[in-house]
Design a protein around this nucleic acid. Structure first.
Length: 628
RNA sequence: GGGCCCAUAGCUCAGCAUGGAUAGAGUGUUGGACUUCUAAUCCAAUGGUCAAGGGAUCGAAGCCCUUUGGGCCCGCCA
């Protein structure tokens, strides 16, 4: 029972009052009130104004009187506001108890939306030819937080990472290794993924400009890549596996994990495309074009004025988007699974098993990573192509919104940061480019942050051991980076600036983590476990009530975040919790009070805050240290 | 030419889905609070024609239309 109980109680009572007035079909709202307007507000009087031919104010007054006869356990009084709103004041003595005792339960904040149905969240999906940069990190963190939220609302979540190991970008670094003399071992001791991206990939694409003979080599390499038995494909496999392993290290370090890796090369070799191609033809979703510019191709007709999209070229090969169709159908469980599964050879943190697909017959393990619903996290530059996939899937599977493209705006570089990378951006923000070497690697950002946090922590706690500081610095830098990637809405471009984006003050993860450290310290110093049997009516301070109220909103926020696939809702909630606690901390003393009963109740509240914040932060994949 | 997205305080953003009260944070600037449960904190001041215009509504930052400015997408590349 949380704050939702009072909302439900009021809603039920208002419905009864409407029944008495023989009014139905009014969809009024019952919401958490704005500060200064009680605890709960309803717009019901505005909606009744027309029906009853009275002013909202009069109706609110009438309803507040009528409300007296309702059975209410959590509402102290209903009050009409001159504006017409109907405001409610909670009986905090009772609500305190409900919220605080609920917050101690393991399942606090759990909401059953998913009813344990399987759902796929696909994210990351970075070409295995380079290290992850800050733009990829946005994708990864959004995907990871969404999957955590969906788990919390009782979906059985399968997290997939699609490894595009046979595309042009991979061919490019192969050309570098095989024809431009790049050594397989970076001489500088660089991580292999950084070496491939920063050196091999950038130099190779640069060389294309001057050496036109490479173009032919590149094409052949790409062709050989698709034939699984070729030497090139085998070589590519060793390279991409090494890069992938490095990319995964970066992800794991940021507390991101997966359930299964899917390889594009295997999807191509599995023959799934032919099956789906036949199905598309049968269902008349694609047409053979016999004239004009797309003559000899299979196309999907554009809706309205949009252009047709070629799916199969006149030479019979499938295009980029076509390769996505069987994979999308596979994710929805619409195709017979051609894969066997094996464990990935390295262990993920928290010993969560990571599986990978294989076409190898010697493995006989079968698994099911498909979902009733699929959410694929891809930046909105791909919106056009994703729309085609989505509408195809809607025709394959009748449930509405079974296949969802969760789009988000990209991360750009501030002109100052672009300048440090050697580009004069003329005061404008710049799109990142792997090809041009214009990006900031995720590992570097983490390293810079960590150094900064270490320095700060050392200053504050000269007594701490090296390993303690190391641990704190890790959690704080991961938190900072993750929070930075999700605190704003998905449709906002993030302009990344090496100095500004790495702030540790204000609306940041360290601000939130710091309040957790404050709470932990109080509990630690109190030297005892607070007894939950307390007098809840002792909470009379505004900052206390406000903190309890905020704690009680947890499940409502989880519901909101899940329904809207909106990670930022939880990020903002964590911030709200921290603000409420800081206000409490500044206004109210907890330890060494004369009134021991009050001290115990406040300790309970601090503990409840700490538990709730930890749970909320867990949804963001952020760990708050006990000291910092 | 067609399509998608954005525009709210000097700067970065909440609020918009589901219209209703006094449009909120952070940051910046200025001033204040550490002998106290950790100052990565708190308090105060400052700062707004919610891009512009029109429409529907008793009522618009929010809904509809138009315009302007900015970003992105539109290959038999991937």
């Amino acid at each position: 029972m949380t704050f939702k109980s009072i909302l439900d109680e009021i809603e039920n009572n208002l419905h009864k009052l409407l029944d008495d007035l023989s009014i139905s079909d009014v969809e009024f709202s019952v919401e958490v009130a704005k500060p200064g307007f009680g605890d709960v507000s309803s717009n019901i009087s505005f909606l009744l104004a027309k029906k009853l031919h009275k002013s909202p104010k009069d109706i609110a007054e009438m309803l507040s009187e009528q409300y007296l006869k309702c059975t209410s356990t959590l509402v102290e009084k209903a009050q009409a506001h001159p504006s017409g709103y109907l405001n409610f004041f909670a009986n905090w003595g009772k609500l305190n108890q409900l919220i605080l005792s609920e917050s101690y339960l393991a399942e606090f904040g759990d909401v059953d939306i998913g009813q344990n149905t399987p759902i796929v969240v696909e994210h990351t999906s970075v070409n295995p030819n380079k290290a992850l940069h800050i733009g990829h990190i946005r994708n990864i963190i959004i995907g990871d937080v969404v999957s955590r939220i969906l788990k919390k609302v009782n979906y059985q979540v399968n997290v997939l990472n699609y490894v595009d190991d046979s595309g042009l970008q991979v061919a490019d670094i192969l050309v570098g290794f095989q024809h431009l003399g790049f050594s397989l071992e970076p001489s500088t001791g660089k991580k292999f993924d950084h070496y491939c991206g920063d050196d091999v990939y950038v130099k190779t694409t640069e060389t294309y400009e001057t050496d036109s003979s490479l173009e032919e080599i590149r094409k052949n390499t790409l062709k050989e890549l698709e034939d699984g038995n070729s030497e090139t494909a085998k070589f590519a496999d060793t390279i991409t596996r090494r890069v992938l392993a490095n990319q995964l290290e970066t992800c794991w370090n940021l507390s991101v994990s997966y359930d299964c890796l899917n390889f594009e090369s295997q999807i191509i070799r599995s023959g799934l495309w032919n099956k789906i191609f036949e199905k598309l033809k049968e269902m008349n979703l694609i047409e053979f074009e016999d004239k004009e510019k797309n003559a000899g191709c299979w196309v999907i007709r554009g809706e309205n004025k949009e252009e047709d999209k070629v799916i199969v070229r006149s030479n019979g090969t499938a295009t980029y988007i076509a390769k996505d169709i069987p994979y999308a159908a596979w994710k929805l469980g619409l195709l017979e699974d051609p894969f066997n599964y094996e464990k990935y050879d390295k262990e993920q943190p928290h010993s969560k098993t990571l599986w990978q697909t294989t076409l190898n017959e010697s493995s006989h393990i079968s698994k099911n990573f498909s979902g009733e619903k699929v959410i694929t996290v891809i930046d909105s530059r791909q919106a056009r192509l994703q729309k085609i996939i989505t509408s195809l899937m809607a025709k394959f599977k009748s449930t509405p919104d079974a296949y969802i493209h969760l789009g988000y705006e990209s991360v750009t570089l501030s002109s100052e940061t672009a300048k440090t990378l050697g580009l004069n951006a003329d005061g404008k923000q710049t799109q990142m480019s792997g090809r041009k070497g214009l990006y900031v690697n995720a590992d570097s950002v983490y390293d810079i942050l960590k150094e900064k946090v270490k320095e700060e922590t050392c200053k504050r706690h000269p007594e701490m051991t090296f390993s303690e500081i190391e641990k704190i610095a890790h959690h704080v830098s991961v938190g900072t980076l993750r929070y930075e990637m999700i605190k704003q809405d998905l449709d906002k471009i993030i302009t990344f600036d090496l100095t500004k984006s790495l702030s540790l003050e204000g609306d940041t993860a360290p601000y939130i983590q710091y309040t957790h450290a404050r709470a932990s310290r109080i509990l630690e110093k109190s030297n005892r476990v607070p007894s939950i049997v307390v007098d809840f009516s002792l909470f009379t301070e505004e900052s206390e009530i406000n903190l309890i109220k905020t704690i009680g909103l947890f499940d409502l926020k989880v519901r909101d975040a899940a329904n809207n696939l909106s990670p930022k809702v939880i990020a903002r909630y964590c911030h709200d919790l921290a603000v409420a606690f800081n206000s409490f901390y500044e206004h109210v003393k907890v330890l060494e009070l004369d009134n021991k009963e009050l001290e115990n109740s406040r300790l309970c509240l601090v503990n409840s805050f700490k538990i709730t914040l930890e749970k909320a932060l867990e949804l963001l994949g952020i760990i708050a240290p006990d000291r910092m």
